[in-house]
Design a binder for these strands. Structure first.
Lengths: 338, 338
DNA sequence: TTGTACGCGTTATCAT
DNA sequence: ATGATAACGCGTACAA
């Protein structure tokens, strides 16, 4: 690992000059510039980012915290893909660290990124509460953006979408197609998203004067397997069911698997809806792709915002993604039979 | 951002003492220890990792480079999940950076990680050649481990598995069930993995004296959509087909979608196999889950090795994962009908 | 047991 | 246009 000093000596100049050549800041003659470049080449020199970042207190990279329980989600790769691509265009590096599985560890992950002097950090939280995050944002100078949670205090530091509204629309869609007995598979209920989607379902039923039948609501855990179990539980309850709305695609896939094992052809005898739009799900039934995954859109938006904060001035929009997503989430018709 | 110096002053001691308290190295009396901790608390002090790493030339974290074209793969989340969990137990941080989409950029990603002084870096390469990687490993002191590629020179720095063998077994499985007209959907042929799987297919056919019919081989691109296209291409060729082997699950899913659109029930009229074992695929047909994804196993193994290199001495096993995987890849029976 | 002083590799502010 | 030199925040011999 050769240092700047070695390069300087090889080139017969001072450290300062080498630094100028590398940064492009300050005047330096073409002649010495060439010498320096040659010396860099010869020495196989690489700037030490730690030293540079220590001196400048910047790092040209932004951090992302995701709890590793979410790594399993099929849409997770989509998130990363989005984020990396967007940042790439901006010349910054995305670095991902694991939020593990507790509020404390999510906190530490954020700290780790900040301790590395990331220019900003994005968190897709799972355990931290809104108030905790508001507090964390207060305590740090670097921008900290929160995805999929509506903060109380720092509204411009978060971005979220209307899960309740989407769920409402999905339910409404089924109702309008003549379904009165719509079962609902929830996500894990420690998740705000799960709760909101459940609320949207209930709202729609109430609004159409159908009424909520608790026996039609079964608790899932976001996984395909829990979708299978959910259908089993549903059957055990002996309820009449003409449609099932699952809180995400993976559970919908599991549910469909179970139904199909029992000889029930999904697109015909029963309607089945999921959210998210994971890569392989569209091939299961067109109905599944009718609602787009909002998460990657949120990531995309948050990065745009971050970039303009870091590069441009400090404009602080309020979070407004809700209405746009609601619009997009309108359910398409598709070859649906009830 | 308070510094160590501030803490020292608050506690009425020197920087060195604070440093000792934090690191646990060297003697320090309980009394001053308490004072220091109190001062740390009051100041809300956080060690600056850049400074620390710069001074020690270590970082307690290891880097992972994955080309973002692979982010889309459904098994990608599995890789991360594995890696993060394993490292978590070891008290290290995993940081992921994007290898983007060229050899040059993969190179830069590795450099970035090294420049950050990661203790080691793992690369799941897509564009770098074996020789280039051997050279990179030569040039750096930090361990650089390569996944899914067999290096020429640094055999102990890579880990791979026998894609050809797996493919051979899968093909053999179909042959033994009476199939003589087995179509094969390749992956993108710029991928060594794709080529090896194709080779395994051909070997099996030859070994059983069935002979390779080029008209039954159709080129895919790893995606579900390309699986659909592949089946379409196959049909256009008017060949007799009783089974299809796809080079990964996503293409298998696409293929099944197409077949099912045409009214062909997959488990009955035709056999369909994929690799990988992605989360939602098992629900499509049991056949798809018959061959396990080797990638996350490789990652897991490489991390184990890395940990013993970093923590323990420098034992250098040769890469030997092949045989184990071959064993595991044996195809299960499942409700398969030909 | 604690403090001093120097080094880690850069950047940045002065002079020159 | 270029060169000293002081930060940046921390670790660590060495001395006390």
């Amino acid at each position: 690992m050769s240092t700047m000093l070695e390069v300087a000596q090889k080139a017969g100049v001072s450290k300062a000059t080498v630094s100028r050549v590398l940064s492009g800041k300050g005047y330096v003659s073409e002649a010495t510039k060439d010498q320096v470049y040659k010396a860099i080449e010869e020495a196989g020199y690489r700037p030490n980012l730690l030293a540079r970042n220590l001196a400048t207190n910047k790092s040209e990279c932004i951090g992302l915290v995701v709890t590793n329980t979410l790594y399993n989600g099929s849409y997770f790769s989509e998130i990363l893909s989005q984020a990396a691509k967007k940042l790439e265009d901006n010349g910054r590096q995305l670095i991902l660290v694991d939020g593990k599985h507790s509020a404390q560890e999510e906190r530490e992950a954020i700290q780790f990124l900040l301790d590395l002097r990331c220019d900003a950090v994005i968190i897709y939280p799972r355990f931290l509460t809104i108030d905790e995050m508001d507090e964390i944002i207060d305590q740090h100078k670097q921008p900290i953006m929160v995805v999929n949670r509506k903060l109380r205090k720092h509204q411009s530091h978060c971005i979220c979408c209307d899960h309740k509204g989407s769920s409402f629309l999905a339910t409404k869609y089924l109702i309008e197609r003549g379904h009165n007995d719509i079962a609902f598979i929830t996500g894990a209920l420690d998740s705000p998203t799960a709760i909101e989607r459940l609320a949207g379902y209930k709202d729609a039923l109430n609004q159409y004067h159908i009424g909520v039948n608790e026996a039609l609501i079964v608790q899932g855990k976001w996984t395909p397997d829990s979708g299978v179990s959910a259908v089993e539980a549903l059957l055990a309850r002996q309820q009449k069911v003409s449609a099932i709305l699952a809180s995400n695609d993976e559970m919908a896939v599991g549910a469909m698997k179970k139904l199909s094992d029992m000889g029930i052809s999904v697109p015909h005898e029963i309607s089945l809806l999921g959210f998210d739009n994971i890569p392989t799900a569209p091939y299961l039934t067109p109905a599944l792709s009718s609602i787009k995954d909002p998460v990657s859109d949120m990531i995309s938006e948050v990065i745009s915002r971050l970039i303009s904060m870091l590069d441009g001035g400090y404009l602080s929009r309020d979070n407004i993604f809700t209405s746009q997503l609601l619009e997009r989430n309108s359910v398409s018709d598709g070859p649906f039979k009830s």
